[in-house]
């Protein structure tokens, strides 16, 4: 990839806030919602993924304290982050939910970013506190709509919230049956076309 700073249109020495601001503006500009039914949708989607990749790269580099581009040493600042997200993720994975919650609880209110809300949501989810989990996931998604992890979490919960139950005969009902019926017709017409190509006819009337 090109210089990630160039993609976001900012200087290498920009502060974290500036990076975030630039990122958010670009996301607003290229968000797929803006390009529905627009021929430029593909281009915008490509641009979006570039922007995301660039932002992720900058943030991971800054988080680990390293500087972009190996030999470049001028701006190697170390960033003390309010919490260690990898550690908290590990704790949640291994089921030490109370410990993870404690670490998250220690983070002061102004340091709570989208990931904080996502992690807190995961803690609640593991516990079975689904209402709180939903609120936190929604907040994480609202703060960073382009993040695949957050949007997957919220869309799963939104599906359940609207009454979906995995494996239920009820939600298998209407929609998919309809699809099957449509598929069946399409297949028949397709077969008919093939027959007609070869000089035969499967459905005489069309």
């Amino acid at each position: 990839m090109d210089n990630p700073y160039k993609v976001l249109g900012i200087d290498r020495n920009a502060s974290d806030d500036e990076v975030k601001r630039a990122y958010k503006e670009l996301v607003k500009k290229y968000h797929p919602d803006q390009y529905q039914d627009n021929p430029l949708a593909d281009v915008a989607a490509e641009k979006m993924s570039d922007i995301n990749a660039a932002y992720d790269q900058i943030m991971t580099e800054r988080r680990s304290g390293g500087a972009y581009g190996g030999g470049f040493s001028g701006a190697s600042r170390t960033y003390s982050y309010a919490y260690n997200s990898a550690e908290i993720r590990r704790l949640i994975q291994s089921g030490s939910v109370t410990q993870a919650e404690q670490l998250l609880g220690n983070v002061s209110t102004q340091d709570r970013d989208a990931e904080w809300y996502f992690l807190m949501g995961s803690v609640c989810y593991k516990r079975g506190w689904l209402n709180d989990a939903y609120t936190h996931f929604a907040k994480a998604y609202q703060m960073e709509p382009s993040n695949a992890e957050y949007s997957a979490a919220i869309s799963q919960m939104n599906r359940q919230r609207s009454g979906y139950m995995n494996g239920s005969p009820v939600n298998r009902g209407a929609s998919s049956d309809m699809n099957q019926a449509c598929d069946c017709c399409t297949n028949l017409i397709c077969a008919d076309c093939c027959c007609e190509c070869m000089g035969g006819d499967l459905i005489p009337c069309c």
Binding site: R159, S162, G163, Y164, M165, N166
Partner: peptide
């Protein structure tokens, strides 16, 4: 709905 959705999972 949230509870039942998760219960089904």
């Amino acid at each position: 709905n949230l509870t039942l959705g998760e219960l089904a999972e």
